[in-house]
Nucleic acid binder design. Structure first.
Length: 457
RNA sequence: GGCGCCAUCGUCUAACGGUUAGGACAUAUGCUUCUCAAGCAUAGAAUCGGAGUUCGAUUCUCCGUGGCGCUGCCA
């Protein structure tokens, strides 16, 4: 990679809510791109909106990123601590007559907007202040009751940029009007702060959600006004709700933190990665993703978040989980054999509760012990015989199976042997093999449960 | 309303301009089986519409249509 600037990308969420899956996917693709190219993945908190930003949300975003193991390079940058940089940039623009103070009231702007819509005109504000004597003044006239705001002086021109994912995209600058860039010298607005920060952080590639495409021409104009070099832009497709609208709070389950209790981070990463990119295989590790990743091959169209597929992926990863790790994750104090029984048939971690009979005595009605149309007497006899088998056999799959098979032949009915035994051990209509449960429970507990079942009849 | 982005099975997607339009998830059925799960097998299921370019369009161009995004003194 020599002769070229080191690649730097960033994730720049605003702490006005919990991290959602869209942000997580954006983080992943930025991270993959950085790793693939030996670059840096930086992290910036966009907390210029002091009204809505909270430390709590910030903390939750950090935790989500750590849980997903998407490590960022360097220190976390806070926009709230960079006021002086914005102020300098703003002053520079005013001096160069690229920005100016506007004192139009909200009411005036609203009326203007309304009229434009009625006349099928583009919604924009071409400000008369630009041509006034105040143009170039560093500070607004201190008229009490008048609200000044800083706007960029926009001229007619075509703005074109080459999106890595989408190809050339063109906008007409005049349609933007003289858009706002700061409420005051110390209160920059989003698009302005982003440009100043990305430039100073040396961001080479702005990889972000497609909802930022329409911000891009504004940002390009700011880069130009500031005389700064443009980064390369790449706009990721959106993650959609089942109704194909942008995934948002009203759809629920969008907060990454909510996935922690049920999903393995590797599964979520795998799912998010494969949602808008086609890797060589369905189940793939993040290391393999890094090797294959090519930003130009990210898909263009939005993808519906399909929980079923996430669940399937999650089950695949859970299945591969060593018993010890599974027990750590779920805080379950059970045998390795019991853990293996659960991981084999689990889609979500919390569903492990359905296997509570592996660590606590099950409750069930005696009707459940009946196999098809057998009577209680037959069931009782079968269980007594099974009890003998379990008592005599060594605790190995082969030994128990041999004993129960022999008994099945004797009784001429395998179901009559296995069903009541399985219910006696699990208390469930559906469960793993009775032999596996017995092995997971241990001899003592197994015998105890069979005796309990017999006493019920 | 303005501007922009997007368009293959229900969902995620594959297909140098030439394939019986492929795979995965989901669904259904079967095998296995005491019941689940897993696994295996099988099945149904798609190129938004119209022009154009071409010997030949899922693929290229244009026009529609639809979906979505943005349209703040939010980010």
């Amino acid at each position: 990679m020599f002769g070229r600037k080191k690649i730097k990308v960033r994730l720049a969420p605003s702490p006005t809510g919990y991290m959602h899956v869209g942000t997580a996917q954006s983080a992943l693709y930025n991270w993959l791109f950085a790793k693939k190219n030996g670059g840096e993945f930086l992290f910036r908190i966009e907390d210029t909106d002091i009204e809505r930003s909270t430390k709590e949300y910030e903390q939750s975003i950090l935790e989500a990123l750590e849980w997903l193991e998407l490590k960022w390079d360097g220190e976390v940058v806070h926009q709230s601590k960079r006021r002086i940089h914005y102020r300098r940039a703003l002053e520079k623009l005013i001096t160069n007559k690229k920005a100016f103070w506007c004192n139009h009231t909200k009411e005036e702007l609203e009326a203007e907007r309304k009229e434009e819509e009625e006349n099928k005109q583009p919604p924009r504000h071409i400000c008369s202040c630009k041509s006034s004597s105040a143009f170039g003044r560093h500070y607004p006239a201190s008229n009490p009751g008048q609200n000044f705001i800083l706007r960029l002086a926009v001229n007619e021109q075509k703005i074109t940029f080459n999106d890595v994912i989408r190809g050339p995209i063109e906008f007409e600058a005049s349609l933007l009007g003289d858009f706002s860039i700061a409420k005051s010298l110390d209160e920059p607005l989003y698009n302005f702060a982003v440009v100043v920060d990305d430039a100073e952080m040396g961001i080479t590639h702005a990889i972000r959600g497609e909802d930022h495409i329409s911000n891009t021409p504004k940002q390009i104009l700011i880069y130009e006004a500031l005389g700064l070099p443009l980064p390369i832009f790449a706009h990721l497709p959106l993650i959609l709700a089942p109704d194909r609208s942008k995934l948002s709070k009203r759809h629920g389950g969008m907060a990454v933190a909510d996935y922690k209790k049920d999903y393995l981070p590797e599964a979520l990463i795998n799912f998010l990665g494969g949602l808008s990119y086609t890797f060589s295989k369905e189940i793939i590790s993040r290391e393999e993703m890094v090797k294959e990743f090519d930003l130009t091959k990210v898909h263009k169209s939005g993808a519906v978040f399909d929980v079923k597929k996430l669940n399937w992926l999650n089950s695949q990863y859970i299945k591969k989980l060593p018993p010890k790790e599974f027990k750590n994750l779920t805080n379950l104090n059970i045998s390795d054999a019991a853990a293996a029984l659960i991981t084999e048939r689990l889609e979500r971690l919390m569903d492990a509760q359905e296997f509570s009979y592996l660590w606590s005595e099950p409750q069930y009605g005696k009707e459940l012990l009946k196999w098809k149309n057998s009577g209680f007497e037959q069931v009782k006899a079968s269980l007594s015989r099974s009890l003998e088998v379990l008592k005599a056999a060594e605790m190995s799959r082969e030994a128990i199976l041999a004993g129960l098979e022999k008994l099945s032949v004797e009784l001429g009915n395998k179901g009559l042997v296995f069903w009541p035994l399985r219910v006696a051990l699990s208390g469930k209509e559906k469960s793993p093999d009775p032999i596996d449960i017995a092995l997971a429970l241990g001899k003592q507990e197994t015998i105890k449960r069979i005796e309990k079942a017999i006493s019920l009849l």
